[in-house]
């Protein structure tokens, strides 16, 4: 008898795996993209934060002169700090979502995790759009409420211009700039998070289907 034949018998009689996977677990393993999508959302969130930070550092100080002129420097600083705190809180939520989805639990919990992530992203995008809109609204109303100062800044050489005309032009150009900015921002989020959300939605639907079978 071959030496290996003895071992073969031991092999045939070996116990089955103690930790067997259920169909739900197998499903999750086979579709183990969900948690990686959430991970990407988290990473993109951080990159985005770094990007806006970077832009702030790159902007020349002269831009801030207009805030100085209107004595808005402190307000701007407070606003910026608050804004970043909110974004960091959002990042923390993204991270929590990621943790939750990575842990193997039951389908219901996974569905809830995906659902929560979707909600967090939605609020994140809304927040960013709202803050862009409100920020410029506040800035403009402060600027326009003090027409003398506005004249001083916009017309340093004191050329003969009609105040009303200048204000109208400023308002119109501001509105157009704001609209363009909002649309660009909206596209940016729609594209970036939309793609990730779409995949997440697909997983969600499949999971819900599976849950109804079991």
């Amino acid at each position: 008898m071959d030496l290996l034949d003895n071992y073969k018998k031991a092999w045939d009689n070996q116990p089955e795996e103690v930790h067997k996977f259920s169909t739900i677990e197998i499903y999750k393993l086979a579709h183990s993209k969900s948690s990686s999508i959430v991970k990407w959302i988290f990473i993109i969130g951080i990159v985005e934060l770094a990007f806006w930070f970077g832009i702030n550092l790159l902007i020349p100080d002269s831009i801030y002169k207009i805030y100085e002129d209107f004595n808005l420097e402190t307000e701007l600083k407070i606003f910026m700090v608050l804004h970043y705190v909110v974004i960091i809180i959002f990042l923390y939520f993204f991270y929590l979502n990621y943790k939750k989805i990575s842990i193997v639990g039951n389908t219901k919990k996974l569905i809830q995790g995906i659902f929560k992530t979707r909600k967090t992203i939605k609020y994140y995008v809304y927040y960013n759009l709202a803050i862009a809109f409100l920020g410029s609204l506040v800035m403009n109303s402060v600027m326009l409420s003090d027409s003398d100062k506005l004249m001083e800044i916009m017309n340093p050489e004191n050329l003969p211009v009609n105040v009303n005309q200048l204000i109208t032009v400023t308002i119109i150009s501001q509105i157009i700039a704001l609209l363009i900015f909002m649309v660009l921002l909206w596209f940016f989020y729609k594209l970036l998070y939309g793609i990730l959300l779409k995949k997440l939605n697909k997983n969600y639907k499949e999971l819900a289907k599976l849950d109804s079978i079991n």
Binding site: E16, E17, K20, F21, S22, T23, I26, A30, L210, I213
Partner: peptide
């Protein structure tokens, strides 16, 4: 998908 899941579950010992 359902077919895959049941067949894989049944044969998971191969993978283990």
């Amino acid at each position: 998908e359902t077919k895959f899941l049941s067949e894989f579950e049944e044969n998971q010992n191969i993978a283990h």
